[in-house]
Design a protein around this nucleic acid. Structure first.
Lengths: 211, 211, 211, 211
DNA sequence: CATGAATGAGACTTCATTCAT
DNA sequence: AATGAATGAAGTCTCATTCAT
């Protein structure tokens, strides 16, 4: 009996998370407006009413879902960068690989990007948070890495502030391609990543191509 | 009197275009599902029923709108590239500037990109057409330019097929940034474009940095 | 040229009739409410607007159509009956055959019956006219025939007023069957008519009338 | 309190039936196409949305309504016929009275007939079911009765298969008259029924069968 | 007379939200 | 907490009717 209670209690504690997961799938598949709360409920294995126990409106459910799924996307990036030994080029390579993992391979990251593009206009608060919690940290991370490379003479000294965005642009753009063309976009992703790093480094290095 | 006749006829001929323009604005602003046909009608200065004189369903209206607005995005790109004199680097610079104009500055181009990302899943036909009519031509254009540069020895000989996508990625990514952050994204666009071209060229040139 | 004018004029004179014919087909096929004026127009080879040149409303079109198609259903019945020589039984047989022709074989007659049943509630005037112009004359015709048979001793003397309806009931009921089950109802129509006449004249009993 | 619980549950169980009843009234009054779901809802004391809790479309509501109201029209006919003592003539008289009750007096029976005639074309499945569940059983019932009468020598031996339809035709035709002319048709129904039975049993001829 | 573009009321249907149980 | 019946506002789409040409 109390086994059941325990089970019940555990279920109860997990309900919000299950609903958020279901909401992610549903919203990602059809978009905010076209998603019915009943779809979310069915996916979560509950009924419509239950959603309202935890989330007051559809909008709030969407916002909480985006927050819960975008949180932690960059959580271990710092330690990753810090832990890498080697030249700045190697560090950048590692960071870009990490980024590809989080923004392209990981469905969560990709779909968050879609939410920003597709629904951002109706959820400006969400965009602001995303900028603060994801864009800014990411940019400063790459920025620091570039500056370090400049300081050590491995990178050209004349890099400007926007260079950092150029460096990561192909990464996120591959995410966009996946969003548009599905899981099998007309891209050789491995070659794409190699070309990206190669082009970026040979453009960045103070003395490229062994000159 | 025949002025009136002309008036009627001219209105009739212009109606579909006016509706498509209104549809573009409305769909761009709220997304497909959240847009009410009444909004489109009001913007076009007609009533709901009038839309159905020209378009059988909301879906068809959306599709025709995307087609009409994506057509011609690349129309004069060929002549542009052909008309440019100078080194391959200069040609690429011109082409990228042209692309920035069409995919970033021009609201039409940007919003088409948003439609592909946000609604593509529900309009696969549209995505296929976009790929065929926009992506493929664009890629071969850039591709031809790169190959020409390789042939003349100005570009590195070891470029791979995906390099072409890397080259244009920052362009379209700036479009994405605008889509997310509005018309005033946290980017210095002029510096961004310069950094893009600089980074790309110095990565592409066989003997960069005057070496 | 005036050949064309003549053609035009002839066409013009025929237009209302063509529209009424088209209306008959359309209303018979889908019912009053479900029929679109555009269907009628298409069938008549004109446009919606033209219908309004001749008929002020959909209701009026329907009423006029029913009137034009129910008129003359009984027109030559009198002469038919008058022209028949022979016993009353033979005369009745002829009249019933005539009725089968008009109410069962003839699609017009059948569909008028359907209109009365299906739409009569919304067109009481039409029902009243139908009663006056079709039902009453038909009943008195059969009535007269029966009375004549009684007078000559060929028919039983104890027939009541309602007998006349009983006599024609199977005729119209076959029409109903056709309306319900289409042009191939589950009935052997020839045997049905024979059985009708036989039963009407002779009855079921082996030794009728207490003989 | 548990009274309230019961109240909710009982309502829930009764809702579909209430809606079907309301639908019957509404569709009978105006026909399928002209009936608005809002009319049905108002009659049932609910709102439009509630109808969709139980019936997915207007079509399905109509079909289910016809089914629910045509079911049981013939349910106790067998026992009735079986329970009647007496000559075949008496049995037939009883059966016809029963039929008059079900197809003429009972509004349900009459309106089902109207639905078949008026809407059958758009609901062929419904017509097929009606034929299978009502027409066929009715015909075999009357058929058996006639054959029994023939076997006992009370009925003529030369009856054909269609005779059975002729026998019941006036019954259903009276239903049709009521459908057309309302609850007060220009018929003396009592005399009509008597004349029907009398004529069916005895026929018109003073000296039938060539006697 | 004939056209057909335009209208707008109104139909069916959906779905976020509420609330008694 | 969880349910799901019920709501009603709002959306897409239809179509009888009008009217400038």
């Amino acid at each position: 009996m109390f086994k059941c209670e325990g089970f019940r209690r555990r279920r109860k504690a997990e309900r919000p998370g299950e609903i958020l997961d279901a909401a992610f799938e549903a919203f990602a598949e059809r978009g905010y407006a076209a998603t019915r709360l009943e779809d979310v409920a069915a996916r979560a294995g509950v009924t419509k009413g239950t959603i309202y126990v935890y989330f007051p409106t559809k909008e709030k459910l969407f916002e909480d879902m985006v927050r819960s799924h975008s949180a932690g996307l960059l959580s271990d990036a710092d330690t990753l960068v810090a832990g890498i030994e080697g030249a700045s080029g190697e560090k950048l390579r590692s960071l870009l690989h990490f980024l590809y993992g989080r923004c392209v391979e990981d469905r969560r990251g990709r779909e968050i990007l879609r939410f920003m593009i597709a629904e951002g206009k109706n959820f400006p608060q969400l965009v602001a948070e995303h900028y603060r919690d994801f864009v800014v940290p990411l940019l400063s991370m790459v920025s620091a890495l570039l500056e370090q490379g400049v300081a050590t003479g491995q990178f050209r000294a004349d890099l400007c502030r926007e260079t950092v965005r150029i460096v990561i642009a192909p990464t996120l753009f591959l995410g966009v391609l996946r969003l548009i063309f599905g899981d099998a976009p007309p891209v050789d992703e491995e070659a794409y990543v190699d070309a990206h790093i190669d082009l970026t480094l040979n453009g960045l290095l103070a003395n490229p191509l062994g000159a």
